[in-house]
Design a protein around this nucleic acid. Structure first.
Lengths: 201, 201, 201, 201
DNA sequence: AATGAATGAGCCTTCATTCAT
DNA sequence: AATGAATGAAGGCTCATTCAT
């Protein structure tokens, strides 16, 4: 057994174990001991490599965010037109890998964590801004800046909203229906060059 | 100090303290001791009246849900037309009392709790179904059943989505912008009697 | 409802409730609250009348001992000869009322309590000495003092031993078999005027 | 401080501490904290190795039963004839190590615990059955089955009875007298091949 | 006479974290 | 590199006891 170069392997094993554990427990109330056991190492090692529970959770968070970002990037690489790009983002957002129940549970837990942890908040904000700028970039090629900003906000909220509803299980529509509804919102918005009076007047 | 009929007073004080505490901590990782102290009583009394931490959290949850329900009912009582009623629901959903940071934090935490606790899940599902049926009732007077169902889902997701984004602070639009965007989604949908092809084609 | 003269009624209700509770729980780990509830009064009253948990337990103990003593006295009052009197003590010891599972459980618990509480120890010692002197009184009319003392010790041990075995449920012989065995021991001893060599030589 | 293979050492230290503590307190109302302190470890470690208070108590119980069993086995290994074997059992039962005040206190407490805990009850029943079968095995070589069963019951009751009386301190005869009395009972029974009329006629 | 509101000490238990090996 | 032994703080919960009414 090699004694060197184990670090990246151990780290990844611990991160994977953490995500699985969070998904199983349904919250961040996982124990370092269980994560370590699942990763096949001692609890001491988990601290050694990741440096404490908070760091472990953040590492898992970064990993989930990275997976998500990779998906988006990959989907974007396959298409060209602005509209296709927007739909690619939607597709990536609801990719089965990202929209799996345990991943959604983890997302939710991270949002809660962000209430407390500055770093968690920063990570989620980075994700949110990236999503926003991705949406905005394409929307600006289809409509005026003001509406583009507007639609980006709505799309992002809707995506997040379906995530949270997914977490409630029984009220969530199917994945495909979900995607269709988000896409429909996009199409409706783009069809109307003139913004309705708006407000609740 | 009064010695009789304290139960409802203590219960309410404890529930209020719980919500404040959850809002402050940003998660359900609050301690009974702190809640009790904030309510001005001993920890023993918290158990005496509410019966354990889980029950305390559920009581707080029920209270938040009730406040929310009361707001919706009140707003609905002021208007008549279907469209006004739909907008009333939106208004209530984003009422400052319901959309306050600490309340939103509590909502989020409850969604996480629902991953674990059957009762928490049940309560959130009751809320979700009530919101859904309120929306559906008015939408059915404005469009066909299939679209009504559709729009109700979209509206609910958007509302929830703006809640979760509110929890992330810096990315959230203002309360009024938020309301405007949800209302706009509603108006767009209603303007188009014919559903667009949909899907991601 | 009378407000005076309630004391003896309350006291007795509390004591009965205590014994029932001990029997049900199987140990002295009963709570004053439950005893009070069973007696139909508030926990405060239990303290008011009995003066604390220890006093309540001791009162229950005294009551059980008194019941036992009454039984013995009653049985003794019905017979005359020394042998009959000895058998009367055995009969009383295994009277269904005294040998009931919950009473035996209480006895056992009291023996444990006596390890800690001086007063509990004193009460049990009083019982033990009374039993001993009752046995001895009759035995002295049937045999010499040395053997009488001897037999009294053996009888008492056997009685206690069957009590403890009763507490283990499945290994205990029937009540009648039990009594027969104790009586047989008595008869065997009396038949042998000459004590066997004894010891484990 | 050694850091490996501590488990058996800690376990034993904790079990010993538990028995001492039970003996000192006189009941099972010992705290894990005190046991741990007496064993020279933290309370967390007690849980780590034994797994909770109930498990700790059961481990102590098993240990006492094992010591007892070992004594009996050892004494039995030294003799051959049935009578000697019976007396060996009596000797072992009252061996100073088994008949020590703190061990007797623990026995008593375990009997109470058996009223509540299935596992405690099972352990005591195993002990009781083993004692019974040991006695029966030898008795069957000396008398007929019916009487053998009879005598085994009486002997076991008497042994247990002297244990319980030992717990009451002042009424207990000396250890040697105790043994002599049990042995005498045995001899009396064996001398009378014909069972007396018995009963309380 | 009686209530039950209220306290607070004490217990069991869990877990992140440290550290000797 | 890796272990797991060990700690100790912290939390939930129970309950005897007190006391204002």
């Amino acid at each position: 057994m090699p004694k060197v170069g184990m670090e990246p392997i151990r780290r990844q094993a611990l991160i994977d174990a953490t995500i699985l554990e969070i998904g199983e427990v349904g919250s961040l109330e996982v124990t370092v001991g269980r994560i370590a056991k699942r990763a096949g190492v001692s609890s001491g090692l988990a601290h050694h490599y990741l440096g404490g529970k908070d760091q472990i959770l953040l590492a898992a968070m970064r990993h989930i965010l990275k997976i998500f970002g990779d998906h988006v990037r990959h989907e974007l690489s396959l298409v060209d037109t602005p509209l296709d790009r927007l739909e690619a983002i939607i597709t990536a957002s609801f990719h089965p890998r990202n929209f799996a129940a345990e991943v959604v549970a983890a997302w939710l837990a991270f949002y809660v964590q962000a209430q407390t942890s500055k770093e968690a908040q920063r990570l989620l904000q980075v994700y949110a801004r990236r999503l926003h700028s991705n949406l905005l970039f394409s929307l600006l090629q289809l409509t005026d800046p003001s509406r583009a900003e507007h639609i980006a906000q709505g799309l992002a909220a809707m995506i997040d909203g379906f995530y949270i509803r997914k977490a409630l299980q029984d009220i969530a529509p199917s994945r495909l229906d979900t995607m269709a509804m988000v896409a429909e919102y996009l199409h409706l918005q783009l069809k109307h060059k003139v913004q309705p009076a708006g407000g609740l007047s």
